[in-house]
Design a protein around this nucleic acid. Sequence first.
DNA 1: GCCGGCTTCAAACATCCGTTTTATACGTTC
DNA 2: GAACGTATAAAACGGATGTTTGAAGCCGGC
Lengths: 233, 233
Amino acid sequence: MDPQPRSATRTRLLEAATEVFAERGFRGATLREIAERAGANLAAANYYFRSKEGLYLEVARHQLEALEAGLEREGGSTQPEDVDRLPRSRLVDVLHRWIETTLEILLEEPGHHGTLMVRELAEPSEALPQIVRRSLDPLRRRIERLLSRLAPELSQAEIERCTRSIGAQIYFYRTHRAALLLLLGRDDYPRGFVREIADHITEFSLGGIERLAAPRRTQPAARVPRRAGRRSR
Amino acid sequence: MDPQPRSATRTRLLEAATEVFAERGFRGATLREIAERAGANLAAANYYFRSKEGLYLEVARHQLEALEAGLEREGGSTQPEDVDRLPRSRLVDVLHRWIETTLEILLEEPGHHGTLMVRELAEPSEALPQIVRRSLDPLRRRIERLLSRLAPELSQAEIERCTRSIGAQIYFYRTHRAALLLLLGRDDYPRGFVREIADHITEFSLGGIERLAAPRRTQPAARVPRRAGRRSR
DNA sequence: GCCGGCTTCAAACATCCGTTTTATACGTTC
DNA sequence: GAACGTATAAAACGGATGTTTGAAGCCGGC
């Protein structure tokens, strides 16, 4: 793929940096440790990437490319456009597949992509826009497209909110992983966890969508009552 | 409350440290900046808190105490035990209130509590167990209790999963705030956003719960089909 | 076989940061 | 008012880190 095969040292630096940045974050990582793991000289990082920040951004870029390539290979990435040609009966199956695939990617070990994302959310850098555009947004667009076919009664705003509810349930198991494991008293998710969670999120979300779509199919049903005024954001 | 009123310098240090740690994280914060904002000497932080880490942990402790006190004042904190005495007709209202109150706390400006939580999730420290025990777990227990009354057909495992789905939707707007604002092309959530989101999360989640409880009320309905084997986590 | 580039290397540089030290001022107590 | 524990101040210490420098190594081309 690359025009010139790039230096082997450069590649090893990139790999080592991916690990160290994931383990310690941008600030916590040191060029000395990265160089040591890569078996390279301390000056090499600055030679190839100009600065620590340059190395970090290159790691992020590389991670996102690998993610996109992985999704391409994996069957899990039915293209957004394909949704429109799918029979309605298969939409739920596709949704379930996306949820499970995304969970697998986010929770996989060593899970550099998920770690990078969580760190960027906590302390955004120039890499966050890339992550949003190349990782979060594609999933969002697919789900929105699918929901607008699955529940055409919903308004655009409702579809967007439902999409966020689905994404929220998926990403939760990554962003809150440390807290969840503390609550569960475990040091890793149990075997079969991803499947269990994917099943649940799918069912739960279908229920949510049904309920939001229902009033427009029959007559308006009882919704949450609004109570006296409070200040709002 | 405090036996001795504590030093004013100590208090100003704590306030300044809360800001700086929220803005820059533990590593990014410097005692020099904290001391400067507090109008104190550089050595003061070590004098009162023994070390930078001691100061950080004290900030975390203080934040959680403020959170608990705030919840106490706010009507939003119906005690978990009270749920059992509530008429079933009011359960939904209470759930909606909890969701909205939690969103308000997490998204409020300057939102030190939410920021601290997100940073701890990205890079856990000794403060995370405290956050889990005093912030996440109380909400979890309340919702579980409520759901077990609202949908007694659900198994314990299902209730736990539904509780996580509700929590996930709430926390999403905090953990993914930076990404969401990028997607929305805004630099802050619009006015009235919390109310809109709280309404949505409540309805969406009620739908999810209904769907999961439904098969046991009538006959088993069509669920997501399981397909051929894949490796699982 | 020497020249040119690209790459590697060891060392030094400059800066920043948490912490400690030491001295001085303050306030209370006997 | 002397003594003493507490609080504040300035300065220095010791270590780590990103970056730069300048020399040495490598290697193909002429």
